[in-house]
Design a protein around this nucleic acid. Structure first.
Lengths: 162, 162
DNA sequence: TGCCAATAGTTGACGCGACAACCGTCCCCG
DNA sequence: CGGGGACGGTTGTCGCGTCAACTATTGGCA
């Protein structure tokens, strides 16, 4: 189950991928935290709700769309609810389930945060790539996610058209 | 400072990149934690030391090579020292500095962990890509890191030949 | 109908990383 | 050669994410 190492090209790609996953979260978090008082993950949660019908999603669905475990989401939503950005209520269709809905304040927070966030993404990530590289990244990403997320837990997020 | 959103290609690439940075750490951590009792970051620290002359590096240098802040590294090295995998001693050249050296047990831990880790990387990451995509990832990675790490803090890690 | 496994979600404890405050050493400029 | 700013590192606190345990509801199958 081993027998061989990574060759030079593979190692180069691998080391860069590691470095990116170490550095990217910090870049996203610090801008959003500073300018909008939100962590990147909190922003993603609000953004997903903002695009959903009724601005409402079931916890499990929201967790899948944000690549998070249910406990993580539960903690985050509780904090967002305490800040008045989100509200929870029992799902009428299934008494086990909980729905989360974006409040007006939550909508306002997303709208306020989005431009700076997009500018940051463009400045620090997408802006450094050629259009051809952007296309390559999307295809690469699909191939990687097929392995990283074989259950397709995140399909809703990264392949909304399926 | 905004005025425009991401277009469809950019959004596709961006969403995939986000998903990868959320999922990859868990995949790496859980395999190493289970099979070797190490977090991925601890493994990287040991691996960097194992490749250094005398298996020894100064804290600051080790922090740069592992994309970490100094406080983070300090905590991690203390734990590794308590487990006997690493030892710290004052740098003879500079009384302010501390050197970390891999112990025999630490070397053994890296050697024991490496095959499973490499297999995991191949199985879950590199193995899903074509050789052409591996090359693209390396180039893409350079372009992204030029923005994410403009100071070249990690240069030593991802471009060892410079 | 009644039972039991599976599903949906919450909670509490624990560990790790970020941040800020701090100490000791070095170096350079006056 | 002496004082101050910069450098190198450690420590403590706090917040967040994971894991495990738990409750409640559902749905299928006898």
């Amino acid at each position: 189950m081993d027998a061989f190492w990574l060759d030079a090209d593979e190692m180069a790609a691998w080391l860069r991928l590691i470095a990116i996953t170490e550095l990217l979260p910090g870049v996203l978090d610090s801008q959003l935290r500073r300018d909008a008082g939100l962590s990147h993950y909190e922003y993603v949660v609000l953004a997903m709700l903002s695009e959903a019908p009724e601005r409402t999603l079931q916890m499990t669905s929201l967790a899948q769309r944000t690549s998070a475990t249910l406990p993580r989401l539960s903690h985050v939503v509780r904090r967002l609810e305490e800040r008045g950005l989100v509200e929870r209520f029992p799902c009428p269709k299934d008494a086990r389930a909980t729905n989360s809905r974006l409040t007006a304040a939550g909508w306002g927070a997303v709208v306020a945060a989005a431009p700076g966030h997009v500018a940051n993404v463009r400045k620090n990530v997408i802006g450094g790539l050629t259009p051809e590289q952007v296309r390559q990244l999307a295809e690469l990403g699909d191939a990687l996610l097929a392995r990283l997320d074989p259950q397709g837990r995140m399909t809703a997020l990264y392949r909304p058209a399926d």
